[in-house]
Design a protein around this nucleic acid. Structure first.
Lengths: 353, 353
DNA sequence: GTGAAAGCGCTAACAT
DNA sequence: ATGTTAGCGCTTTCAC
């Protein structure tokens, strides 16, 4: 039965075709700018398109073409500045290439990460940018590998031969931090991190340790790692200080850790940098307006996103070859939270590297 | 030509069917749990499914069913805690109902907002949750109306009869702020906001003004509104203080404004609450660890997301009727940044409402 | 230059 | 209980 005009169903390519007095095939050609269509018909098609407000359904079109112009992005959370701007960048880059980005949050759960990846697989996305909850050996990465999905791993990853990976050079950045702090005279450090994020945390920690060992072999580096949640870390930190430990500088390896450290400083009435110095991994907007301003390692979000997309599209376009690992350098923003040990004047606000 | 076994194309429903020795229709039935299939065949189908790793393509299935189990979410930015957690919540709620959430950022641009909405329309999403850049009269909302898309507007919106809307009760929250501050003895206020976010800012401002007028008719409320960007606001604020204006309390109507205010306080060497008090709209994690901690209005993200999805799905399921507007109450977290004018002791850390 | 026909992966009537 | 057929909206040979 013919459809009534008043029906609210959206115009399909056939509606346009009959309205323009041509076939659907011709409409399709016009929409794709194929030049072999007679100008008169092109005209008629455009008129019908405008009249009906026709827009092709990209999903139907993709179905026929047996390819999806969709990139999946999976991140541990949307709530942080880091992953928020990462998704923004990835979206921009995907759209720039005519793809849509579908972002999903794994909510720091490896189980959910797997489910989300299964959905991406079901959707037949062209490729995935995965920021794993833990590291490159998680179930999600394994799933991707098993299903032969094309993808790139970012952020919390070490080398793996299954995928290209891109992350910031946490070891290098931590060496910068060590150099700064040692240069100011610090010899007793506390480093805190979350063990679950094994890949990144270990890099950062080892980079720091190695640099300190080289620059000041006599220095002491204490480490507090909590397994998976931030609250145990708070407890451990509290115990540590309660025992009377007094490092002159604290280096937090992840952003929420910086908040925990600050709140413990508050509890004890310690002020940076006079009572103790603080550097955090991951910069945030608020860190430059508080009193004191907080020194931080700035991750190069745009570079990471750019490299990740670059590599991903190369793979999508069929490039073979061994997987590559790329480390993007970080900047270190020294701010007021860092000074010489023992309440000396701080080092000023210059940016390094 | 028959496909070779080694081909890496994903298994389709036909592959499963032939493998199980039944028709595609039967496989489809089994996948949907239709009970009229002979147990023996159910078994065979499952075996084939497992063997081939078959998973239905939800997009193809949706195409056939002429409906898409996709909800679109459009927010001005992914970078803030507020919108980040909003997207997280919306994703959770959509998935709970068997839909996928596709989130996009309008990047604070109304032009882009329109484009993003056009894409959602092209995708034939079942519904959209739109947090407009400016207000309910923007081009995106107009587009949604014109295309008869089903959607709900959140956050920066006033009433509109075209859509259901959900936002936090900015006026009520601002009245709470006014009550607190007036109660402490403040009589000279500065309120800052971004004019472009017309809908919310006006509500919040008027709520504050009205409450102050009622509680302390003699009080003075200065207002600085910048049009669209945050930098002009910084300039205006600087000029204002340079002129010698000394309100005893500042109320920032949006989160980035709070950062601007803090950085201007820093420039002038003013400390909260002794030199001046500060309350910001929008809470953030860091506000409870800095010195001083920053008082803030907490928006009920989960309630907003919950109501929005609730209403959206009602509409998707065909519910008619006039559009409704819902305001969710906020909480006010008093913190150390607020005290009595003139450097008196601050009011403590209780939470109100 | 154009359109008929086939088909992407799936579901839903409708015979059987 | 099952398979055949038709078709969602689109693209792509391939005759004409």
């Amino acid at each position: 039965m013919a459809r009534s005009v008043a029906e609210k169903r959206r115009a399909s390519i056939h509606d346009v075709a009959s309205r323009a007095g041509v076939s659907a095939a011709t409409v399709s050609k016009v929409m794709q700018g194929v030049s072999t269509v007679r100008p008169e018909n092109v005209q008629r098609v455009y008129e019908a398109v405008n009249l009906l407000g026709y827009r092709a359904d990209p999903l139907a079109s993709d179905l026929r073409r047996a390819r999806r112009r969709i990139i999946g992005a999976v991140v541990p959370e949307f709530e942080s500045e880091f992953f928020g701007s990462m998704v923004t960048e990835l979206e921009r880059l995907a759209e720039q290439r005519g793809y849509a980005l579908v972002a999903a949050s794994s909510r720091e759960s490896e189980e959910r990460e797997r489910e989300v990846l299964a959905r991406m697989h079901d959707w037949r996305v062209a490729g995935v940018v995965l920021a794993p909850v833990r590291n490159e050996h998680g179930p999600a990465a394994e799933f991707m590998r098993a299903q032969r999905m094309t993808g790139v791993l970012i952020d919390r990853v070490n080398a793996t031969d299954a995928f290209d990976i891109v992350s910031s050079d946490g070891a290098g950045a931590s060496a910068l931090v060590a150099r700064e702090l040692v240069g100011l005279g610090h010899r007793h450090f506390l480093v805190i991190g979350l063990g679950e994020q094994a890949a990144t945390v270990r890099n950062r920690l080892e980079g720091f340790r190695a640099a300190v060992a080289e620059l000041a072999p006599d220095a002491r580096v204490d480490v507090i790692l909590a397994e998976s949640d931030v609250e145990p870390l708070r407890g451990a930190l509290r115990d540590y200080f309660a025992k009377g430990e007094r490092p002159t500088a604290v280096y937090s390896l992840f952003s929420r850790g910086t908040l925990v450290v600050l709140s413990e400083f508050r509890r004890r009435g310690w002020h940076c940098p006079n009572d103790i110095s603080l550097v955090g991994f991951d910069d945030a907007e608020w860190m430059q307006v508080t009193w004191p301003t907080i020194a931080a390692v700035v991750q190069p979000v745009r570079q990471i996103a750019g490299q990740a997309m670059e590599r991903l599209f190369r793979r999508i376009e069929g490039e073979e070859g061994p997987s590559e690992a790329r480390l993007e350098p970080c900047r270190l923003l020294m701010r007021e939270s860092v000074g010489a040990p023992g309440g000396g004047p701080h080092s000023g606000g210059g940016a390094r590297r």
